[in-house]
């Protein structure tokens, strides 16, 4: 049973931040509520004030320019991203990821800001965005700062945000030339949360050598993590199956998955190795043909 709370409905982001400043210890932001209401029902969080930012127009936007890349207001829904022709053209992997994120109902109401803030290590957007070098702009009543997703996740369901801060924008840098990102989660049902997931971005130089690689693992530790050892295997290498295999093994070795009823720790490592190999290769193949 959800415990009682006072419902606050700010009219602007600024007002929301003021309320948040006031209730930073006993308040909670609700956006789509897709995750929050479940944990509230389980009694895991019991805020006294709930600040509803779902309908804030000033946080609901999507823009792209070749220099700054993609900017999405925090309340942009999953479905908006999925259906955006612009996103499909510039960042097709985001659309592919969104199409497999939960069901249409959840994507219709759930938001990108809420998803990233919820900090579930099994979330889909974080690995993909992190792999593309994404960041979030967080704001409080006293100012704004941009945090790279690399530094955003600190522990299980914990982020680098202070209690008076909220995500206002998600930023994805423009895609470099000869670069591609691929993402896959392993799950039992088509759009389930991943048992593990891997996002891989491969950037090639003119000679077809791997100039940069960012491998990000979902649900392979208490937070979304970079697989830096795997990246080392890839960067500077002339890519082939043997290298992908080695990268997979490196990722499997460096992750810290936790066993549960769906998969043992060993099996999770095995899956990480397979998916890393596959995604790195898929990204490479895509990067070769991309401008």
């Amino acid at each position: 049973m959800i415990s009682d709370f006072t419902y606050l409905k700010p009219g602007s982001a600024k007002e929301a931040l003021k309320m948040l400043a006031e209730h930073q210890d006993d308040g909670k932001i609700i956006c789509g509520g897709q995750s929050l209401l479940i944990i509230m029902r389980q009694g895991l969080v019991t805020p006294e004030y709930v600040i509803d930012i779902k309908k804030l127009k000033d946080l609901n936007y999507m823009t792209f320019d070749p220099k700054d890349g993609l900017k999405m207001g925090a309340t942009t829904t999953h479905r908006t991203i999925e259906k955006s022709a612009m996103v499909k053209e510039k960042y097709p992997v985001l659309v592919e990821m969104e199409e497999k994120l939960a069901s249409i109902q959840v994507r219709n109401w759930g938001t990108i800001g809420g998803n990233l803030a919820h900090a579930d290590a099994a979330g889909d957007p974080a690995p993909v965005l992190m792999s593309m070098g994404g960041s979030v702009k967080v704001a409080s009543a006293s100012g704004e700062r941009v945090i790279s997703l690399d530094d955003f996740y600190t522990d299980l369901f914990e982020t680098a945000m202070n209690h008076d801060e909220m995500i206002v924008e998600v930023i994805v840098p423009p895609r470099p030339a000869k670069s591609a990102t691929k993402y896959q989660k392993f799950n039992l049902l088509d759009s389930d949360q991943g048992i593990v997931a891997v996002a891989a971005t491969i950037t090639l130089n003119g000679g077809g050598v791997c100039k940069d690689a960012r491998i990000v693992l979902g649900n392979a530790a208490s937070t979304t993590i970079r697989a830096k050892e795997a990246e080392k295997v890839l960067i500077g290498a002339k890519l082939d199956d043997a290298v992908f295999q080695k990268a997979g093994e490196a990722a499997a070795a460096e992750c810290q998955p936790v066993a549960d009823i769906h998969a043992s720790e060993e099996y999770r490592r095995h899956l990480i190795s397979i998916l890393t190999k596959r995604m790195a290769k898929a990204a490479w193949e895509q990067a070769k043909i991309s401008g």
Binding site: L188, L189, D190, S191, I261
Partner: peptide
Amino acid sequence: LVDYKMIRAPE
């Protein structure tokens, strides 16, 4: 129903 898996339409 998160952890108990059943066939859904895509499966």
